[in-house]
Nucleic acid binder design. Structure first.
Lengths: 163, 163
DNA sequence: ACATAAAGTTCTAAAATTGAACTGTCAATT
DNA sequence: AATTGACAGTTCAATTTTAGAACTTTATGT
């Protein structure tokens, strides 16, 4: 499967993986959420090659996650800021960071702590149900085909791709 | 940066990206959460090459996300099930799916709907603060260096990597 | 005896990534 | 006036990863 095909799968996970499912995109976005905006800042913070950084920034702009805006004329220079679509990736970033905090820390502990300005406390992110507010457990969730589901072929001899 | 180096970065996001930051791992885990357990099931559902599927399964087992257990003798066959560490990736999967549902659906709508057995309703996942229960917004979160942070070198001439 | 199934392994070709150097514009310094 | 340095990239060869297809092994069904 090619990257372009991934984007067309009838699966919201596959389509999102087409955007952020590589080694660098999430790290670039981490820097965006840490208020970095410029090519050199990304490059020196991450150690990514300039070639690939340029490619990834172009891709994230094309997909509407970042916006490229000039911050000076002559020579024209641009910086990259999160769009709303990009800002909406915050729960993805935070859930990934939280999993790392739980399962991948070394003996020294967490690299970063997060303070919620709303309540003033150090917190962990918790994923809850929009309807009842209870924390989500995988075992309590059942999936149903939605309007965009792949049609199930009755008595097909070939197994269907899951949606 | 190599994959091994990523795992050693003082950053929970980088370390998690070392586990799931490729095109296939998240898709394999999607299938795991959809109750798929076997090599052939993964392969036909995803269209991943057998070679790479074998590699990824080995990696996920080595990292403790999946466990490989025999389900029959002669010929010995194995299936792959989520460990607790793997189950804990559920919020990551769900936040990714939700972003895709919000920003990557076509005109037909969502491929899947999620029902919360706890309350019986179709829901969306919402990320809230563990301390005050309010939904998290990027702008309301400030980060502080934790015990595992990279030490900041005073007056360094080279920019530090962000943590 | 032959086909099928499961869970891989092996091989070559194609694609993506790395590393390092190079470009062009401008400001500041010698 | 010439040199240096910053910034935002681009270019290109070498390496690493991934894709695609065929093959292996053990056992069951017809």
């Amino acid at each position: 499967m090619k990257w372009d095909e991934l984007e067309e799968e009838p699966c919201s996970l596959a389509r999102t993986v087409a955007v952020i499912g590589d080694r660098w995109s999430l790290l670039i976005l981490r820097e965006c959420f840490l208020r970095k905006r410029r090519f050199e800042a990304f490059q020196s913070a991450l150690g990514i090659t300039r070639h690939l950084l340029a490619e990834r920034l172009k891709k994230l702009v094309r997909l509407g996650v970042l916006r490229r805006i000039p911050y000076q004329e002559s020579p024209k220079r641009y910086e990259y800021i999160l769009t709303q679509k990009g800002l909406d990736l915050y729960p993805v970033i935070m859930s990934i960071v939280h999993w790392g905090d739980t399962h991948m820390v070394d003996s020294r502990g967490r690299p970063l702590l997060h303070e919620h300005q709303n309540c003033g406390k150090m917190f962990d992110p918790v994923m809850v149900c929009s309807e009842c507010g209870e924390p989500l457990l995988a075992k309590q969730v059942h999936v149903h085909p939605g309007p965009g589901a792949r049609k199930v072929v009755a008595a097909s001899s070939k197994p269907e791709k899951a949606g």
